[in-house]
Design a protein around this nucleic acid. Sequence first.
RNA 1: GCCGGGAUGGCGAAAUUGGUAGACGCGCCAGAUUCAAAAUCUGGUAUGGGAAACCAUGUGUGGGUUCGAGUCCCACUCCCGGCACCA
Length: 867
Amino acid sequence: MHDLFESVYDPAQIEEAIQKHWVKSKIFEAYEDESKEKFYCLCMFPYPSGRLHMGHVRNYTIGDVIARYKKMKGFNVLQPMGWDAFGLPAENAAIENQTHPAKWTISNIEYMRNQLERLGFAYDWRRELSTCDPSYYRWEQWFFTRLYEKGLVYRKEAEVNWDPVDQTVLANEQVIDGCGWRSGVPVERRRIPQWFLKITDYAEELLDGLDSLEGWPESVKTMQRNWIGRSVGVNITFTVDGARDNLEVFTTRPDTLMGATYLAIAPDHPLAQEFAGNNEAVRKFLDDCRETPVSEVDFEKMEKKGVPLGLSASHPLTGDPLPVWVANFVLMSYGTGAVMSVPAHDQRDWEFATKYGLEIKQVIEPENDEDIDLKTQAITEKGRLINSGAFDGQRSSEAFRAIAAELKLRNLGIEKVQYRLRDWLVSRQRYWGCPIPVLYSDKDDILLEQGEKLPVRLPEEIDLDGVTSPLQGSLDFLKSVGSDGRVLRRETDTFDTFFESSWYFSRFCSYDAKGSMVDGRTSYWMPVDIYIGGIEHAVLHLLYARFFHKTMRDEGLVSSNEPFKKLLTQGMVCKETYFRKHGAKKVYFNPSQVETETDSKGRVVSAILKSDSNPVEIGPVEKMSKSKNNGVDPEELIKAYGADTVRLYTMFASPPEQSLEWSDSAVEGASRFLKSIWRLVKRHVDRGLLASAKNNQNLPTSLQTIRRQIHETIVKVSDDIDRRYKFNTAIAAVMELVNNLSRMKVEEDASQQVRQEGLEVTVLLLTPITPHITEVLWRALGHNEDIADTTWPSVDRSALIKNENNIVVQINGKKRATIVLPLDCKKEVYESKAIEDPNIQKYLTENSIVKVIVVPNKLVNIVLKPK
RNA sequence: GCCGGGAUGGCGAAAUUGGUAGACGCGCCAGAUUCAAAAUCUGGUAUGGGAAACCAUGUGUGGGUUCGAGUCCCACUCCCGGCACCA
């Protein structure tokens, strides 16, 4: 590999040779080793959509930098990669391109694996897995049967978006403005029986567990807490005249019970269904409600409407009659599907009551005597009770308990903890997913496939038309015969793809286990030490994965309580957009086809399309996407600059959690930096190699200063990679070091030795980020071992010692001078030296100083009397 | 609508615990090198004023706390992510 160090840096050549070397030396294969501390570094696996995009490159480079760093720090590192291979796009692509989802997916995987290899990621490829492989999904089918036996799985009717023309179920994504994306007609809600996992049984633990996740961003934990949505309240029973059953409502504000003026129930509440028959207006209302798509956004944005059901309930404490309404904003899936409405103290109830002329009765007055006009809004804050009979004068918190106790005494209410979290609906009416291993008899008895019968494989011969599920059309798949000779019908729904992504990280550890879902190796590697992926997964994927992991723990399959110790969420990759308007429609042009003109300060003033030289409009910077045609193809960049430059640029452009704005010229800059290091090492080596400096003995001050910079850079870069995950500032620090090393005058051996040390440190610090070029430079600097296998440089503490500091002198908080002082001097010295400074003197008049604030080794602030 | 996040030069960004705003890079300007260009090297570059020293202003908007605020508090604007069938 020494022969790769030629006079000109040629990334294509060296990267290929070094990648081959890594494969041959099996350097990234991970084995369990109890004598070493393990580190499991994982990035969210990709959906094989066809080609790698910049978001992937960024995600996987972040992971690779951390994995390689940890390896150099002596950890036993596992970094695997696989494919989240089931999903809707494969079915769409299959219809569009007249191919099979499996074929399309597998060829995408082949292509994208090559692209990943070309980027030089340190994966243990032996562990590669694909979720559409029966040897993978058989275990989730098996696990589903285990959960069924434990009572954590059930079948229940649930609503789906139904396209009445195509006669098919639509994903939320396929509903555009309330209409089917192909048919264009309004979708309907339809109830069909589906499978659920009882995630709500784990709600408490999922909530409490967040407190132990110290390595997770607070924002993600807050989102999960809000999603789980624990609230404490009371289930109150109202009797309804003429109805079979009592009406139960859940409320978090029993203190406002005396202000309830009506009840509202969900359109699909049994009581509404029961009484709709003899009421034309109610029937029509329920029909209208079926036209809102099932997504929460549509639900929240719709106009709040209702109709009186014509029934009267009686207040549990006063016996007063309360009208029962059906309202479209009440959710059947939360609480009991019915609410008591207190318009004086709930804003939504207030709006509803105002709209329909219902009574508004105030029962709480604010404690701080705030003047809120009930004619304009509700009083939602807690306070003191009024108009509440025996409860008058109590505070909300006291009244909560008193009223709950009174209801309990009358057997009309019980305290209850309610979660917003709903059970996980895992059924999908699609082909390209893992078959749910269930059979039904002609009487709809449920039988689960077991043992030898698993996996239930997806049939390969299918007919995809985008309308009916191909599984329903496949007679061989549908029909089965039970052990007793009964003819059975197979479940045609497949699992939600979040099912596969909820446990793949455990399977990576036991990737080749034949007889079980996972084995003891998983206990060695789990939990994942750092998990890196998009912020868009903050709730769903990350909550399902935590839940699934806990169910696996309770089955004795894994030993940790949480799957991901640390979470790093990365931002999006963005790029400017260019377009022309054709009427209302915008036609976007890829930035590579556009030429911009700048003014004398480099400001972009106009843009033209290269092909016709006519102007195009400049749009905002947006997430790279097909629809905005602003994607940059990683493959072309790698061809032009090499993987190291692409890796360096994506790490340098912005910190991982922020969005990254792509700039082609800044990529050029990254490439320039690597070339300049190459040249510097060349120049250095040509002078003749000497052993690197080891300490400050016999070195002149100028070289001691350089050694201090070298070791300060090690401190800075280690902290940035290990603790802060700020690779951009780590790179900036290395750039500064390289700038200093290339400017230093090397005449005698001592400085050549210091520069040798500096260059070795530079190359080591850059290795996690640009591992190919550093492998070559490491050998050029006189080493024979692989740099990827070398240890991270250690800090010479004695080189860091400083004798003086620059101290800022402020007047009234504004910087007016800097002075140089020895370390840790007395407060009086700071004061007198600051006041002596000529720049400060001119601001001072007799007795003008009020006080002086000294921040040791940093700053002096002189506070003057106001004039 | 609800939940979470963001806003700093021409641009990407830095400022880690309330203590020098703009490190590092891109772009731009000037110079060196060159027959010329590319590449490379050197210097400059927040805005306004000034020959300079320096002065004033400046971190989305409006208020506040503090000796001192990009950082903390209150109110708002715009942008982004998620909202349970995209992954």
